[in-house]
Nucleic acid binder design. Sequence first.
DNA 1: CTATATTTTTAGACTAATCTAAATTTTATA
DNA 2: TATAAAATTTAGATTAGTCTAAAAATATAG
Lengths: 218, 218
Amino acid sequence: MNSFTEENYLKAIYHLSKDDGSVVTTNSISEAINTTAASVTDMLKKLAEKKLISYVKYQGSTLTESGRMAAANIIRKHRLWEVFLVEKLGFKWDEVHDIAEELEHINSSELIARLDQYLGFPKTDPHGDPIPDSEGNFNHKQLTKVSKLSPGQQGSISGVSEHSAIFLQFLEKTGLTLGAVLKIKEVLEFDGSVTLIIDHVKEITISREVAKNILVVI
Amino acid sequence: MNSFTEENYLKAIYHLSKDDGSVVTTNSISEAINTTAASVTDMLKKLAEKKLISYVKYQGSTLTESGRMAAANIIRKHRLWEVFLVEKLGFKWDEVHDIAEELEHINSSELIARLDQYLGFPKTDPHGDPIPDSEGNFNHKQLTKVSKLSPGQQGSISGVSEHSAIFLQFLEKTGLTLGAVLKIKEVLEFDGSVTLIIDHVKEITISREVAKNILVVI
DNA sequence: CTATATTTTTAGACTAATCTAAATTTTATA
DNA sequence: TATAAAATTTAGATTAGTCTAAAAATATAG
Ligand SMILES: [Mn+2]
Ligand SMILES: [Mn+2]
Ligand SMILES: [Mn+2]
Ligand SMILES: [Mn+2]
């Protein structure tokens, strides 16, 4: 079994390799989990020893198949718990991440199997992120950043690439929640601000930075 | 905040002081949490330093008010999670303890408040043990061991003082579950075996050892 | 009330995870 | 391509929690 700390490293490496298994640098890990690069190097050696990553000194790391499976399982638990917190306990989507960071380390495959069933085998979490199955397979949808759309195009919100509470609260307040249909009215050349119509009704303007972090299915 | 390990020590001390705040020996703690007495001594010093226990060298320890509150809160979480596992996820009463041992350390009072509400503010866990309120108050019922009853007396099962899976499975199989009504038919003088009638229907005989661990309200 | 047994504490060491400071390797740039 | 800058690793320390072996205190028994 992997320790709490090892699990957090595996998860960080998974997220940093952008779902495509690309090489992750030591510094990027240290930044992601708020430790020093020296600490990360120590842990990388240990994870390599356990065959969870392949690690080449000074070059970087990638997850092995067994490391990828372990990471996927942690992410599966995290996202299922997030669904539970929102659907059953009535938390808002900006309140659940930190609690799920703890719950994801609870160790019982029976528990997760039953939780999955209890929740009706959800495919995505409250932020639109896919929930991998128990074999670690993700069903990645083809998502487009709102910032890539041109006037006239439309899509429905299916995810966000920024999960901070402050950002999620802003979206909630503005009506930019999962499932909302957006139609681009105008993209301001000056700074990339996007004016759009939500659900064919409400017109608003968002900054390019906000637009980059909202993902739609066209 | 107290560490995972500190929480386990506090809980062990609470359970060992028999709900009445009596002094707990170092050896009894080491036995309860499967560590050496030397390790326990180290931890007792730390807990005393944090004012969670009062500790007199060579004499033993008792929880302070703040230590008692901390312990009650862990027990509250443990028992609420056990209710969740049985009522919502369909686990059996002999399967939930180990998972609850992990879940009890999740840190979020908001989570526990919502879970409590979601479960309908249960007063007891699946083993009949009382769930303390958020102020740490236990509502101890007046329970009697079946081994203390005489022929003709009856009571309804309201708790067990042994929580091992093997014992709970035996009770389940025999029909000795929470709420069952027992009427004592005979107590064998030879070894204290008890013959009783369950729910006015089924007659069975149990050993004195089993009878000692079943608790009833008369 | 002394000798022995039991309980508890102390001393010293180990592991996991972390850090700072220094050394080494890689990358960028002039 | 040599040097400077940036990234990474190594060396050496620290903290929490644990252990074994030995010492000290307390309890028990003749
Ligand atoms: Mn999350
Ligand atoms: Mn999420
Ligand atoms: Mn339990
Ligand atoms: Mn219980």
